[in-house]
Design a protein around this nucleic acid. Structure first.
Length: 557
RNA sequence: GUCCCUGUAGCUCAAUGGAUAGAGCAACGGACUUCUAAUCCGUAGGUUGGGGGUUCGAGUCCCUCCGGGGACGCCA
């Protein structure tokens, strides 16, 4: 089971365990976790383990001594050329130079399935992301969430989870009232009435556009409605339009959701009410100052929270609890939310509420994404939805393209602030790492066009002697290809898509080095065939990785 | 005030508690009569913000101080 490198690693790990048992350091039943992975330093071999160092506490001996004893009992697989004890007590495994040759048939046979894992074992995972208020347009920060969520979902699907992408539509509450009032004000303005713009209203240009569309479609027919009805009717039409434009922006950005979930539907179906009642039955509710409070402090929170206001309207928090209850009741084993870091205060409250309802809070994972700061002309561009001053996702895509935008958003760890230098990202030059990766793919396709002209076909892998691949550039590239599944596993378990971006950049680098030092066409026939298969394997992995990032793999550049 | 991120090369960032802290960009020096030079090869660049602690071993964990960002509402 598993892929080449994983099989080798698994076998060595198992043998190490057995050796530790034989040497009397471990009982056969012991679960003992140790590391066995690629060392940073190439000189330290292909795999290294810290097992001997970890056994010092149990064995009460010096780690190098333990390592020596382990080696006496260790069964060593054929791919391993030599084993060394190094540094404070590492055991380093040096593979035969050509160990990764087998990855070529493995990749060619698996095709685009190469890298697919079963660690998710079909568990149902929901990834909820973006979920921006439909009262405005999507901005850069939403773009980061969109890229992160979508790519994470791709990775989890590849790792064997059953993934559902979801967008939570905040179509209830105060903000909607403000939104309705704002739309009404713009609508009346456009029809020549003098109105005072609401204090907490949305000042953005986009609201004016929306109002203009309504005037175009419906004229002045809403003018004579009673104020409240007029606001609601206009708001409803406007919200629908906004939602459609958000959907379109996201699709344009390469993101498609499985479910669009309406907050209002939770209120209308009575689920919010039911959830509040459930908390009451479980003894976590009390009344104070005319409001209903959730006794979060009983479960370790700093303070209690209002669930139902004095005026009888449930808070956002109440709806969100109902929403998360609903998620788990839909049967997800794992629920992942991607939130802006400004919501971090909400994380522990949410988990506490789930605990109060009897759900395991561990099944909710919130990825806090640090905010995006936009720089233009070396200056910080302030973003505010209320004043309507922000660069939209659409504008960003128009300027830098989907490929660059997605790659930039995901190339960094989610918990690092992202300074997005618009001028730099706009530059269509070699400074852009995404071009570097795409260029590797384009070079391969160009090579194939040459093959076509010369009547060269990709030979069947059985007919080719791969052992002819022996230069450092070729072997490095091979080794890196063999690491792809391990990389996906790393991304999936750490929920960290930026590793994939980095991996592909490295892979492209190994390819470029290979390409510059090894000619594929016009060399001795057997060598040419073997290199052609190596190129094909590279193409498959590059294309697959780019697809997971949602970045195009161009034929030509 | 309490809490959450964060501080690593000139810049932007990597590094499940591991060995001599790595990439890209920028800088400097080289490589195209041969499959795309949007590439490659080489050089240089560091007290990981300061101090203490935990241990075989710390950029990583703990304490403390300093700097940057954010959250603490009957907003969402």
């Amino acid at each position: 089971m598993g892929y080449l490198l994983q099989r080798i690693t698994g076998e060595i790990a198992e043998n190490l365990r057995k050796a530790a048992v034989k040497a009397g350091y471990l009982d056969p039943s012991d679960e003992f976790a140790f590391e066995l992975e690629k060392p940073k330093e190439k000189a330290h071999g292909d795999l290294a383990t810290n097992l001997a160092m970890l056994l010092t506490k149990k064995a009460r001996k010096n780690p190098r001594e333990i390592a020596a004893t382990l080696l006496e009992y260790l069964e060593i697989p054929a791919v391993v050329e030599r084993v060394e004890i190094a540094g404070p007590g590492f055991i380093n495994f040096y593979f035969k130079k050509d160990w990764a040759l087998d990855v070529i048939p493995e990749i060619l046979n698996a095709g685009e399935k190469y890298g697919r894992l079963s660690i998710g074992s079909g568990k149902k995972v929901q990834v909820e992301f973006v979920s921006a208020n439909p009262t405005g347009l999507l901005h850069m920060g939403n773009g980061r969430g969109a890229a992160l969520g979508d790519i994470l979902a791709n990775i989890l699907a590849e790792a064997g989870y059953e993934v559902s992408r979801e967008y939570y539509i905040n179509d209830a509450g105060n903000q909607i009232e403000n939104f309705n009032k704002s739309v009404e004000a713009r609508y009346l303005e456009l029809l020549g009435y003098k109105v005072e713009f609401p204090e907490e209203g949305y000042h953005g240009e986009d609201i004016i556009d929306t109002a203009r569309n309504i005037v175009a479609r419906f004229g002045d027919r809403f003018i004579h409605l009673p104020e409240k009805e007029r606001q609601e009717t206009l708001g409803k039409i406007a919200l629908e339009e906004k939602l459609q434009s958000i959907k379109k922006s996201l699709e344009n950005f390469g993101v498609k959701y499985d479910v669009w979930f309406s907050e209002r539907s939770l209120h209308e179906s009575g689920e919010v009410e039911k959830t509040v009642k459930l908390l009451l039955e479980r003894g976590y509710l009390y009344e104070k100052d005319g409001a209903l409070w959730f006794a979060a402090s009983k479960l370790g929170e700093e303070k209690d929270e209002v669930l139902v206001r004095k005026n009888g309207v449930p808070t956002y928090y109440a709806a969100d609890i109902a929403y998360h209850k609903n998620k788990f009741d839909r049967g997800f084993d794992l629920v992942i939310n991607i939130w802006g870091a400004d919501h971090h205060g909400h994380v522990s409250r949410m988990k506490t509420a789930l605990k109060a309802l009897g759900y395991d809070p561990e099944r909710l994972i919130v990825i806090l994404m640090q905010l995006v700061r936009l720089f233009q002309g070396g200056e910080l561009v302030r973003m505010s939805k209320r004043t309507g001053q922000y660069i939209t996702l659409d504008e960003l895509v128009e300027e830098v393209g989907v490929d660059a935008a997605r790659y930039f958003f995901v190339m960094r760890s989610h918990d690092a602030h992202l300074d997005f230098d618009l001028d730099l990202a706009k530059e269509k030059s070699s400074e852009n790492p995404v071009y570097y990766i795409q260029y590797a793919h384009a070079r391969i396709m160009s090579l194939y066009r040459q093959c076509n002209e010369q009547g060269v076909n990709l030979p069947p892998v059985e007919d080719v002697d791969l052992t002819i691949l022996s230069s450092e550039a070729e072997l490095e590239l091979l080794r890196h290809l063999a690491e792809f599944p391990v990389e996906i596993e790393k991304c999936a378990t750490a929920l960290a898509p930026h590793h994939l971006a980095r991996y592909l950049h490295e892979l492209a680098g190994y390819f470029h080095t290979f390409y510059n030092s090894c000619r594929v066409l016009g060399v001795e026939e057997n060598l040419s065939k073997a290199r052609l298969l190596l190129v094909e394997a590279t193409r498959i992995v590059l294309r697959k990785g780019l697809k997971m990032l949602g970045v195009s793999a161009p034929e030509k550049m």
